[in-house]
């Protein structure tokens, strides 16, 4: 029994669990906006597109968050530019840009095969994060949470009814850019926890799960934040015992919760839908 408490005795484990929970919570909160905006693919693209920026930042000796963020924004600009100037459909534009950036990132990484810190970018390794990187991740997470605290309602309104935001004196295209920036920033923070490949899971799955459980945005946000924090913590904890991928365990756990909710959710679950359909058929015609 005491064996299960061992991870709590090590400072590095406490740090790993804390930062995973924090990043998981913020990514979970943001995932609500991503899901409602229909930007899962965009989030996937951004989280891959930040990889070359991380490598270049490391080469230049600047904080990787800055390089990653710049790289993500450049990719977003490239996508917006291509969409406006070519008749190619949006999904193809996203596909071309993000694989291009990711490919470049992988190529740059392959030039430095011995650098462990860079290798964790792809697959994540929450137990191996340097203290300086933990501080970066924590700052990003707090800033994203603060920005959502301030502009979260406008952002939500821009997703639900952008014209009403205009009527309230706001600007939907500002909100679009804001969401892009938050997405890129959170992907950077999630990078070292779960890796570039899986970070999109943290940015979509909690929100998708919460969507099935809530009919109000506030409730949805609370549930998604909780799922993100809990799975981040449990994933980091479990990785002490499992000699496996932390990112894999966090995202797989989120997917498992999603499946359970998908089946059993009281109102929007598969079982509830079947019951409601059966009930409607059994009901006598008025």
């Amino acid at each position: 029994m005491t064996e299960l408490l061992i991870p709590f005795e090590y400072d590095y484990m406490l740090r790993a669990m804390g930062i995973s929970a924090l990043v998981g919570a913020v990514a979970g909160l943001l995932s609500c906006y991503v899901v409602l905006k229909g930007w899962s693919l965009m989030g996937d693209a951004l989280s891959h597109a930040i990889v070359p920026g991380v490598v270049l930042a490391w080469l230049g000796g600047i904080p990787f968050a800055i390089g990653a963020f710049a790289s993500g924004m450049l990719a977003a600009l490239a996508m917006a530019g291509l969409r406006g100037r070519t008749p190619i459909r949006e999904d193809a534009v996203i596909g071309v840009v993000f694989t291009g950036f990711f490919g470049l990132g992988l190529f740059l990484l392959s030039l430095f095969p011995s650098n462990v810190r860079l290798q964790t970018i792809i697959f994540g390794n929450v137990l191996g994060i340097a203290d300086a990187d933990i501080i970066q991740m924590a700052i990003i997470a707090v800033v994203v949470a603060l920005v959502l605290g301030i502009w979260g309602r406008d952002l939500m309104l821009s997703l639900f009814d952008p014209v009403q935001l205009v009527a309230a004196g706001g600007n939907p295209s500002h909100m679009r850019v804001l969401l892009l920036m938050l997405l890129a920033a959170t992907a950077v923070a999630g990078l070292q926890a779960v890796g570039a490949i899986l970070v999109i899971g943290m940015l979509v799955t909690p929100g998708a799960t919460a969507y099935l459980l809530a009919d109000r945005f506030g409730r949805m946000a609370a549930i998604a934040t909780f799922i993100g924090a809990a799975t981040g913590l449990i994933g980091a904890y479990a990785s002490y015992f499992l000699d496996g991928s932390t990112g894999g365990s966090i995202v797989a756990l989120q997917a498992a919760i999603f499946v359970v909710v998908l089946v059993f959710a009281p109102k929007h679950g598969i079982r509830a839908s079947r019951r409601a359909a059966a009930h409607a058929v059994a009901e006598p015609v008025p």
């Binding site: 409602l36 502009w151 309602r153 406008d154 935001l165 004196g169 706001g170 109000r216 945005f217």
Partner: peptide, 22 residues
């Protein structure tokens, strides 16, 4: 299917009258 209630939608009409935090 957006997760908003009737009261929430009507409250959106007041956003322009509120401060930045809405």
């Amino acid at each position: 299917s957006f997760p908003v209630g009737v009261r929430d939608v009507v409250m959106m009409g007041r956003y322009g009258h509120m401060n930045i935090l809405r």
